[in-house]
Design a protein around this nucleic acid. Sequence first.
DNA 1: TTGACTATTGCGAATGCGTTGCATTTACAT
DNA 2: ATGTAAATGCAACGCATTCGCAATAGTCAA
Lengths: 139, 139
Amino acid sequence: MCADTTDFAQALRDAGLRATQQRTVLLSILMESVDHPNADELYARAKTIDDSVSLATVYRTLSALEEAGLIRRLNFENEPARFEITPVAEHDHLVDIDSGEVIELSSDEITRLRQELVEGMGYEILSQHTLIRARKKPG
Amino acid sequence: MCADTTDFAQALRDAGLRATQQRTVLLSILMESVDHPNADELYARAKTIDDSVSLATVYRTLSALEEAGLIRRLNFENEPARFEITPVAEHDHLVDIDSGEVIELSSDEITRLRQELVEGMGYEILSQHTLIRARKKPG
DNA sequence: TTGACTATTGCGAATGCGTTGCATTTACAT
DNA sequence: ATGTAAATGCAACGCATTCGCAATAGTCAA
């Protein structure tokens, strides 16, 4: 009994969502994406599998998956939102402003430091995300 | 001789921008704002001083001031961009998701840690910003 | 000062990302 | 199988922001 079978439909039901064809397709695409696609890109990829999906459903599904905690919405600057499967370990993002490449930064120590700071102020953190814009150093 | 006279027009020229009436008004409003207004709010405040300003000019001015480095654009989640005078000391923002209040977090130590991490990867940081969503702890 | 040159403005229309109303379809419990 | 609520596709909409264009206003040189 392998618990990690890629049974996307079951994953949806486990999260309390109805396992529709469209949601299953979108979840599977997100699962195998190594980049951080936006809604339009997901729409394009989904249509190659099931060309009946609509953009409205892509947006509605992304909101549903986010609310269920299955995915995370990334709000970068001056561009449409991107999405990733909810990471097991917290991480931040660095955007290479020349290439547009998005790099994930693990940041255990920094996350913990910030948590202590904010909790000392009487708050509990719901989410935290750092966005770094950077450029490759010459040499 | 006080170098800090609030000569907004001169500040604009020093930054390489033409000192128009509209830009001067907007810069002065931002200078005396303690909150983090968005374009609409700035438009409303500006109209009480010079009711001829248009929303388009507010947006164009904000882009110009940002590009000149005089102000910083804050991209929060699911809301229009907010703006603040470029801070002398780096800081991040905590949004109280119940009240909507925005709290500035100074973060010298964390900023420095992150800088070391990223530079070790061969990048130079152009900007970094952390957004924390949090809720006041009971008690 | 005056003029001339160009950046900036106001207006309204256009864009882009995302959401919504509604009639139809579909998942899933009975 | 069947009923019912939830999800879908489509097209219309909403909001934040940008753009084209003719008119205006800074700035700089004379």
